[in-house]
C-alpha cells in the first residue's frame, strides 16, 4: 500500500530543494506531522528505485560529512508528481484492524473476555487521544508556519480514534444489553 504516497512525497520534497537521504526522513515526518511512521530504510529503498526509473538523480555534495550523496528531482520526476497530485480522489481506506479478528473470535464464546478486551482497548484509545491532543496544543502554542498542516494531520488522527472509541462504546452497550451483565 502507501508505496506510491512515499514515492511522491519524496518527489514533492525534492521539488522544493535537493536533499540528503537522511534529511528526507525528517522532511517526510514533517509533511505528515509524524503520522506516517516511515523508517529510513524505506526512504533509501524508494530512492534507489526512483534513481533507476530516472525520476531522481544523485550527485556528490561539495561539503564535508559522512553522507555526501545528494538527491534532486528530474524533469520526468516533476511530471510524475504533477500527474499523481491531480489523480482522482481516493477510495475509503481499507478497514483492516487486528481488533476485529480478536473480537470476532471472542464475541460468541466469552462475553466477559470480550468486554475486557473492549475495555482495555478503550483505555488505549483515550491515552492516544490525549497524546495527540498534547501534540496539537504544542503546535497551536508554537504558532509555527506549519501550524495549519500539522493541525489538519493531527485532527485526522483524532477523528479516527474518536470514531474507534464511539464504536467501542456502542459495542459495549450492545453486549451489556444482550448479556444482561452488570459491571
Amino acid at each position: 500500500m502507501g508505496g506510491l504516497a512515499v514515492k511522491h512525497g519524496i518527489l514533492g520534497i525534492l521539488a522544493g530543494r535537493p536533499c540528503h537521504g537522511y534529511e528526507l526522513k525528517t522532511e517526510f515526518d514533517n509533511l505528515t506531522a509524524g503520522l506516517w511512521e516511515l523508517n529510513v530504510g524505506q526512504i533509501y529503498s524508494t530512492l534507489e528505485r526512483m534513481v533507476k526509473d530516472g525520476l531522481v538523480e544523485s550527485y556528490a555534495d561539495e561539503g564535508p560529512g559522512e553522507d555526501r550523496k545528494m538527491y534532486r528531482v528530474t524533469q520526468d520526476g516533476l511530471k510524475d508528481l504533477e500527474t499523481w497530485l491531480s489523480r482522482p480522489p481516493l477510495k475509503a481506506r481499507p478497514l483492516r484492524d487486528e481488533l476485529y479478528v480478536r473480537l470476532g473470535l471472542l464475541v460468541e464464546k466469552d462475553l466477559a473476555a470480550t468486554l475486557d478486551l473492549l475495555d482495555s482497548q478503550r483505555r488505549v484509545y483515550h491515552l492516544q487521544m490525549a497524546e495527540l491532543t498534547r501534540q496539537k496544543i504544542g503546535v497551536v502554542r508554537a504558532h509555527g508556519p506549519d501550524r495549519v498542516r500539522r493541525e489538519m494531520m493531527l485532527d485526522s488522527a483524532l477523528f479516527h480514534v474518536e470514531a474507534d472509541l464511539k464504536w467501542i462504546e456502542n459495542c459495549e452497550a450492545r453486549l451489556r444489553a444482550l448479556g444482561g451483565k452488570e459491571e
Partner: peptide
C-alpha cells in the same frame, strides 16, 4: 466528548 476529555491529563469514567 472524548475529544474534549483528551485535554485533561486524567480521565475519570462514571457509571
Amino acid at each position: 466528548d472524548a475529544k474534549a476529555a483528551a485535554y485533561g491529563d486524567r480521565l475519570i469514567t462514571m457509571r
